[in-house]
Design a protein around this nucleic acid. Sequence first.
DNA 1: CTTTTCTCCTGTATGC
DNA 2: TGCATACAGGAGAAAA
Length: 285
Amino acid sequence: MPELPEVEVVRRGVEAHVVGRRVDDVEVYGARVTRRYPPGPMDLAARMRGATVVDARRRGKYLWLVLPDDLALVVHLGMSGQLLVERHDAMAESHLRARFTFADGDPELRFVDQRTFGGILLADVGPDGIPLPIAHIARDLLDPDLDQPAVVKRIHERSSAVKRVLLDQQVVSGIGNIYADEALWRAGIHGERLASALTKPSISRLLDHTREVMTAALEQGGTSFDSLYVNVNGASGYFERSLEVYGQQGRPCSRCGTLIRREAFMNRSSFSCPRCQPRPRRLAR
DNA sequence: CTTTTCTCCTGTATGC
DNA sequence: TGCATACAGGAGAAAA
């Protein structure tokens, strides 16, 4: 599942293969992929024709292509979205949702999404450089302008499970289920501990661990695109072998040997070490 | 206002 | 073998 490191790998691929090129046409397949863009696919295509891609940017799990006139094509990969750079005559994927062709010919850019939890939309960019529809998304842990003490304070003020807060993109963005579990294991904190019951230094260390695990994943995922394929399989690809807890139930913890457990949380799964990350006595949900 | 639950989607794995 | 069910989970709407 694409979280910050995977989306950053995609952004770099788009930056390398698409920035500086002029859009020739856009074809959208099905209505769902543009559901967050009420004017619809015809309008989106019309506004993009002839526009030169100026930049490829990212915040959290969102990425966007900067277009002239303070316009941006915002892309979210959702659960299963991919941006692929391919020859025009390459066979259409069964879940091809949008195709962007360029005035200089091959390659083209495709948005492919099996479950269509992801989507694309056009939006104006605000004075801060962020597309208006995602202005509510908080800075992520790789953002040099992130005010970490302020984030620590916000987390400390929340009366909810700390993992739930980590996953809240309006507090700090880019963290999904995989890296939340990995970071909590590194920090030795059970995700159901009450955020407000943690000390501020321990919350700050947890954020440091999160940043470190994402950086490590990015370094491994960053090697996997070199041709025309913009990889979004970081979670199931190179970094998978480095996962300490996510999906590792029944295997020994690399620190203490206790078997990793799997628990239900927020209608999902959480993975942790029973010894390194003891459950709190009073549950925070 | 804050916090939690529900919903969207489809390929894959599992159970009877 | 076949059918039903569970599961993966990001994000926003809706509910509490």
